[in-house]
Amino acid sequence: MEYKFTSADFEKEVLQSDKPVLVDFFADWCGPCKMMAPVVEQLAEELEGKAKVGKLNIDENMDIAEKYRVMNIPTFLIFKDGQEKERIVGAVSKNELKNKLEQTLA
Score class of each variant (00 low, 15 high):
N72V: 08
F79I: 08
C30K: 00
K34A: 05
F25I: 05
K67G: 05
I78M: 07
L101Q: 05
I88T: 14
C33E: 05
F5L: 14
M62T: 14
V53R: 13
V53T: 06
V14M: 09
C30T: 05
A91C: 04
K85L: 09
L43G: 03
W29T: 11
F26L: 08
L22A: 00
N57S: 15
D9A: 08
E45N: 09
C30P: 09
M36F: 00
L105Q: 03
S7G: 15
D28H: 02
V14I: 08
L56F: 10
M35D: 09
E102K: 00
F79R: 09
E66C: 04
D9Q: 11
F5D: 09
M71F: 04
N99A: 14
P74S: 04
D24E: 06
C33P: 10
Y68H: 08
F26T: 13
D63G: 12
E86N: 06
N99Q: 15
A44C: 12
K19F: 09
I88L: 15
I73A: 10
A106G: 14
Y68G: 03
L97F: 10
N95A: 14
E46C: 06
E45G: 13
N95E: 14
F76H: 12
G82T: 09
F25P: 06
A65F: 08
Y68K: 07
Y3I: 10
Q103S: 14
M35R: 11
Y68F: 15
N61A: 00
P32L: 02
A8S: 15
N99D: 15
S93A: 10
E2M: 14
A51G: 01
K98S: 06
N72H: 10
N57V: 07
K67L: 09
V14T: 11
D81I: 02
L77M: 11
A27E: 10
A91I: 00
I78Q: 04
G82M: 03
T6I: 01
D28Y: 01
G90V: 03
I64N: 05
E96M: 15
N61K: 05
E46M: 05
D59Y: 08
L43C: 01
R87Y: 05
